[in-house]
Design a protein around this nucleic acid. Sequence first.
DNA 1: AAGAATCGTTGTATAGTGCAACAAAATTTC
DNA 2: GAAATTTTGTTGCACTATACAACGATTCTT
Lengths: 140, 140
Amino acid sequence: MPGRETSIDTIQRELTAFARRARHKASQLHPDLSLVTYSILDLINERGGCRAADVAMHFMLDKSTVSRQVTALEKLGLLRRETDPDDQRGQILRATEAGLTLLREANEQRRASFAARFTDWSDQDVARFADYLARYGAED
Amino acid sequence: MPGRETSIDTIQRELTAFARRARHKASQLHPDLSLVTYSILDLINERGGCRAADVAMHFMLDKSTVSRQVTALEKLGLLRRETDPDDQRGQILRATEAGLTLLREANEQRRASFAARFTDWSDQDVARFADYLARYGAED
DNA sequence: AAGAATCGTTGTATAGTGCAACAAAATTTC
DNA sequence: GAAATTTTGTTGCACTATACAACGATTCTT
């Protein structure tokens, strides 16, 4: 077994390499939905509607960035904004039907693309890898 | 053990979440070296010198992008280019002393930041996680 | 009621990226 | 061996993503 330091270096390098490639892959996988817009749409869907401020917080993005992305998504008809009845400053973002459809398609493509990389992995190895990643991500 | 599909979804989600935050974290970790420039410098160091085309291939970047990043790194004095004696079209990129120093510092900060997340992981789990990531990355 | 905080928009600037056109060198083809 | 093709890198151009700052509207705190 390699040393702990070496292993941590490997983890660091591999995760960074993945991050570097992620944008490119996302654009290939669903050209009409960038990594950012996909992630935003996915988040508001998962949350069942949320505010721009929540999105900004979650992705560590400036509110102006989110504002522009949301405007773009709205123009594409993928989400709509409703003024929050409890706080007229804010808006509740919700995916439209078209947004949900696109999101489902994108998720399907992503899943297929990921699955293809694991064809020669055993079920056990896939499960363990997922566990480790989840454990890692949970510490965020 | 969860189903294979579920595990793959987890892997997909966790890796994507990491990618979304990576740029921001990198800029916080070492403000003088972006995720891209850091990655490029790290790669040419690890390879003991390589060509711009290798960098582009490895990170799936356009050669023009790499060309500009390399120019920037050279202006900062972090790497130098040597014409490849065996092929005068190409250049061999090598980190300078200043580049190596900066890289060491950045790596130290990154390692510390990463290591902090593994304090409650056993050596064996860290090693296995590293193995899985390396195996995943190798299929690129 | 006054001041402070929050939410979102817009103006401005910058970095990162891809594509296309190009130049130089090497390789292949005839 | 000359011509065509491929490889390697640069530059011009366009566009996206991003942050920061200033702002207006609203809500919260005293």
